[in-house]
Design a protein around this nucleic acid. Structure first.
Lengths: 230, 230
DNA sequence: GGTGCTATGGTTAGGAA
DNA sequence: ATTCCTAACCATAGCAC
């Protein structure tokens, strides 16, 4: 008969912690590192299991950025920012049972309608700009813009106007950006593939500074993982 | 003595699954839903524990978008897109040892400069619009816009112009949006808290279709969670 | 900042509502 | 598509490198 001698416990094992700001700096760093990669792993699993597009961005308090994305962060962000469905729905070749899949032809139709709307949008922008100029004169606030003038009642009217202005701007930007992307594909500047339908131009400035593989499962996940200094 | 009768097992309990595309549609949907909220919860915990800024975006294969962010998705995306350090760097009260922290005064100075630049940006937009109108007349393509006219050489010049136009639009939008946000805080429409310095107004066009609280811990986390149809 | 080691605590697959 | 339930599975807190 073998005597089972209970070895002295080398660790306390996991202990329950309260979800509140960790005060110990070193502890915080370790936890950050572990949980961050935990989330990235979960994100990768989600995308594989469910065919979802996932993007995760994490800023540490030290100001570093870490991100994970499937198929990659930029694509997911671009889809989100442009309000356009992810590339998969435009893919007619992938004959899966996605009920929301939009045939390319239909998408083109929608796109043409959007373009038709563009002219009116641009006109509206000019209108609002005209209003701005009017207000500046009427308000007589010299160097400042009308929305900087606190004497103007900003409670309802002006805020809505600014919102309106912003919406117009954004609509125009979105549609022009969409067209620009098509043009680029036509020009061969971009390859058609699973690329963002609407490039988010304001993001072109990033410089990736390091790139690591995704260790856990030997890189079976499609997503990329990289961090770069700020 | 109480006789402990083993009740018949109502479930098999959790079973190990392989990380590969789930074929059963219903199964996939359930897993997607559960794991998605699991990730959001993890993200919330990470931000609370480690003071990190986290943003998560998930597209389902059905084309729906779900996102979580602390302090909110827009802020994280804006920081990522602009390459600017996260909002915590603007927080003078939190006297932590963040080397990237920017004093509030300095930020205000930068902001004023940005506003000053606004007028010029707007002028540039008008200029480009003028050019557009010119091109339309010169090109003689009637109903279509100049960028739709394939007879126009889009290889270099026009693409750059459109890019320029987009940059201008985006700059203006961002700055007006920033001002709008301040105005809202002043009006009490928003509470100051840890809110986005630059609200991404171009995302207002999305229609939130459902909003759920963040169940687990009774909504102690600052982040928001919402999904909307595409 | 990252790793390897364990004993837990927590997440979640499966089933049903 | 979320919610409840249970029994596994698995992530991870606390240490030491």
């Amino acid at each position: 008969m073998v005597i089972l001698r209970k070895l002295p416990k080398r660790t306390q094992g996991r202990k329950r912690i309260e979800i509140k700001k960790l005060e110990n700096l070193n502890n915080k760093q370790v936890t950050f590192s572990k949980r961050r990669s935990g989330i990235f792993k979960k994100a990768a699993e989600l995308s594989v299991l469910c065919g979802a597009e996932v993007g995760v961005i994490v800023f540490s308090t030290a100001g570093k950025v870490f991100c994970y994305g499937h198929p990659n962060v930029e694509t997911v962000l671009d889809c989100y920012c442009s309000g356009v469905a992810p590339p998969a729905v435009f893919d007619d070749t992938a004959g899966d049972q996605n009920p929301n899949r939009v045939p390319m032809a239909e998408f083109n139709k929608e796109y043409m309608e959007a373009i038709k709307e563009l002219e009116e949008q641009k006109r509206r922008v000019v209108e609002v700009k005209e209003e701005v100029r009017m207000k500046k004169v009427v308000g007589g606030c010299g160097e400042r813009f009308w929305w900087e003038d606190e004497s103007v009642d900003l409670d309802v009217l002006d805020v809505q106007e600014v919102e309106h202005y912003l919406m117009s701007l954004e609509d125009v930007r979105k549609k022009v950006a969409a067209r620009l992307h098509e043009v680029r594909i036509l020009n061969g500047t971009l390859t058609p593939g699973a690329l963002p339908p609407v490039p988010a131009v304001h993001r072109l400035c990033h410089m990736p500074m390091m790139t690591t593989g995704f260790g856990a499962q030997g890189g079976q996940f499609g997503g990329g993982y990289h961090g770069f200094g700020v």
